[in-house]
Design a protein around this nucleic acid. Structure first.
Lengths: 231, 231
DNA sequence: CGACGGGTTGAAGTAAATCAATAGGGGTGG
DNA sequence: CCACCCCTATTGATTTACTTCAACCCGTCG
């Protein structure tokens, strides 16, 4: 894991530019460095802070009493976590790998949003675009087959790469199979089988378990919405 | 359907109080009366307006190319529909029964939010509480059994009644079985069987197909999260 | 080396989908 | 008012996609 070397701990511009207006960015205690598997907050914790991912990937999930788990989101740099009305967090948030995270007092954030309309607007934009993303995921969770889910997932993970690169598109999956499964509402065995199937179809390659190469994006897009007649 | 008689067409206070600050409420053309099955907007329509449900129930859904359908939300009076960043709507919205709906130009709304912080705050609150509700639904769609889904659904539909009344709690389901199924990621047959099972367990009664009586809320709550050892 | 965690693959079991028949309820037209 | 139809819902029989259980592989680390 060489990614951990990258500049963890130094200040940097955030996608939201919060550091410039909370007036707190220069005090280091607001930025936290987490190791892999480390928890940002637990379900039920007081939601006094909102967190911004600066680096790394954070997995937000909820557990049922019998141990079933649903991953609600993978949060990437620029994403906000824990922006809620309620007094406590409704899910657990933990870093998948080493991560750098900015902690913003919720009241400060909301107060600033009230005072500076363009910030309020940004927050609202973030929230509404989250809503739109979540709507896509409802379709995926409720109505897609295992293969369609995995194909959709890979395309979503590759989105940022899709814009820049052309095929083949190669990137790392920061999460384990079981995390993907709990995100897609499947078992990890089913996810594994879907990967194998996609490999057999020449849609992807898996040079290492967490490394993916998309060979045929068009085919993946097709599979993501349709699950047409292969097998 | 006697509910249709109620005051459709007259002005009234909205949960958001938009009529007071858009300065448009007194012009009737901003309020639309829809019959059952009538469409508010289609997926792909320009998202120039945001809609507030004043009365009735609106079903928001998306269709896949092969006809599969996922209901994204049932919107009740006080709910906002179509608050998005993108230039087009990402889903269809149609009234389940006769409904009264306020149409608000999106730019007006966003402009007002910028000018009046307390309105911006309200919008943000609406969006974040939507996010919280959607997180619950991820758990339901991804990790719950058919019976658990239906039990959760009934409790959610009864939420407003649960606060006021005590058992037995009786109310009408404004949607058909197939709508419930497409909301829960099931088939309508499975939903029907789940209703029957709940009836056999004495958890509910179904005097008519769209009328529900909750006999044992504790049992339903148990089933909603656990699916403990019955059958 | 051996143990351990994560991943893949195979075989068997099961919850829900699909296919199919029947029943009820509401509206229309005779 | 009844007869018919259409739409919705229920119930049963069968199929199937995914889960569960289990074996095995492979790389890492003490």
């Amino acid at each position: 894991m060489h990614a951990q070397q990258v500049a963890i701990g130094q200040t940097d511009p955030s996608a939201f530019g919060f550091q410039s207006w909370t007036g707190l960015s220069d005090s280091y205690q607001q930025i936290k460095v987490l190791g892999g598997q480390e928890t940002v907050f637990y379900e039920g914790d007081e939601s006094a802070y909102v967190y911004e991912v600066l680096e790394g990937v954070v997995c937000c999930y909820r557990l049922l009493s019998d141990g079933r788990r649903q991953v609600l989101a993978f949060s990437f740099p620029g994403d906000l976590i824990g922006l809620v009305q309620s007094e406590t967090h409704g899910f657990n948030a933990e870093a998948l790998k080493a991560a750098r995270i900015r902690r913003i007092p919720r009241n400060t954030l909301l107060q600033t949003a009230m005072e500076r309309p363009e910030i309020g607007r940004k927050l609202l934009e973030f929230a509404t675009s989250e809503l739109a993303v979540m709507q896509d995921r409802f379709v995926m969770l409720g109505r897609k087959s295992a293969l369609e889910k995995v194909a959709s997932f890979l395309l979503a993970m590759a989105r940022s790469h899709l814009e820049k690169q052309c095929e083949p598109i190669s990137f790392d999956l920061p999460m384990k199979r079981v995390d993907i499964a709990d995100y897609l509402g499947l078992t990890f065995e089913t996810v594994s089988r879907a990967f194998t199937k996609l490999r057999r179809m020449q849609a992807i390659e898996l040079p290492q378990t967490q490394k993916v190469v998309l060979l045929d994006v068009a085919l993946l897009k097709d599979l993501a919405e349709n699950e047409s007649g292969w097998n």
